[in-house]
């Protein structure tokens, strides 16, 4: 059992390493992608400077907390998209029959498929997360905590993407549902939860769990609420299990295809 986990880990690590090497074939493109993603994220600071010039508290968040909200949003997104980019293409992978190659290998099909591509610009997001930590004045311990929270949130986001992508085993057009669903997670992620009320707020902590991926970590970072930490950790475990369950359930319905496909 333990060696199986170790071997799986070794293969996933190699897979990510090779996918990264592929991205690094062109150095200039590699670095511009990272740099421009940082600039891209940074541009949104203007929006908040303008908003905070109107009022010094938006939705119950201080400016420092907004910086951290952006940090967590970028960190979770970056972690998820860098290591598991293919989770976001799962619909396409299923519809085009690209799981074949992973199905004939004696390894976990889901892990093999989602780790076989990395997104360079997501590295920019991860860096941006740390830049925000720096501007928010976090100490060393809190930066470590930030890292852990980004990983938990990133895994949660990945699991959501897998759940949505797995719907493609049942519906061909599920790719659009998946795209919208993943879009929701990022759209809400950078706005303070105080501006939402009633049913929307309930949705944000349940069906569209932005609250769990983004808002609770802010409370953990700024108020050190340990109970919230356990909550998001348990949520991650539960949703990861659910994602594996649904994916393997759907795999029985997988219909492959004779489409020409290459891993370029």
């Amino acid at each position: 059992m333990l060696t199986a986990v170790k071997n799986q880990g070794r293969v996933s690590f190699l897979s990510i390493k090779y996918a990264l090497m592929q991205e690094m074939l062109n150095r200039v493109t590699f670095f511009t992608n990272i740099l421009f993603m940082i600039l891209n994220n940074a541009s949104f600071i203007i929006q908040w400077i303008v908003l905070y010039s109107i009022q010094n508290n938006v939705g119950g968040y201080t400016f420092k907390q907004i910086l951290l909200l952006w940090g967590i949003a970028a960190g979770t997104y970056g972690f998820s998209h860098f290591f598991f980019e293919n989770a976001y293409d799962l619909s396409q992978i299923i519809n085009e029959g690209k799981l074949d190659a992973y199905l004939v290998q004696p390894k976990n099909v889901l892990l093999s498929s989602i780790t076989s591509k990395v997104k360079t610009s997501a590295l920019g997001d991860i860096f941006y997360g740390y830049i925000m930590c720096f501007f928010a004045g976090l100490g060393v311990v809190d930066i470590l905590l930030f890292t852990i929270l980004s990983i938990i949130g990133g895994i949660t986001l990945t699991a959501i993407a897998v759940l949505l992508g797995s719907l493609s085993f049942w519906f061909q057009k599920a790719d659009m549902i998946a795209e919208s669903g993943n879009g929701f997670m990022t759209n809400f992620a950078t706005y303070p939860d105080g501006i939402f009320k009633g049913i929307v707020k309930v949705l944000l902590f349940t069906l569209i769990p932005v609250g769990i991926v983004n808002y609770l970590p802010i409370s953990i970072l700024t108020e050190h609420k340990v109970e919230f930490f356990f909550l998001i950790f348990l949520f991650m475990i539960a949703i990861v299990f659910f994602a594996f369950f649904l994916f393997y359930r759907g795999l029985k319905r997988y219909s492959s295809s004779n489409l020409m496909s290459m891993r370029i």
């Binding site: 009022q55 938006v58 879009g183 759209n187 809400f188 501006i195």
Partner: peptide, 16 residues
């Protein structure tokens, strides 16, 4: 996605 963006902005300005 379009609906969500507009909804968020509406909430934001309602708050402000």
């Amino acid at each position: 996605g379009y609906f969500i963006m507009l909804f968020i902005f509406f909430q934001l300005w309602k708050y402000l």
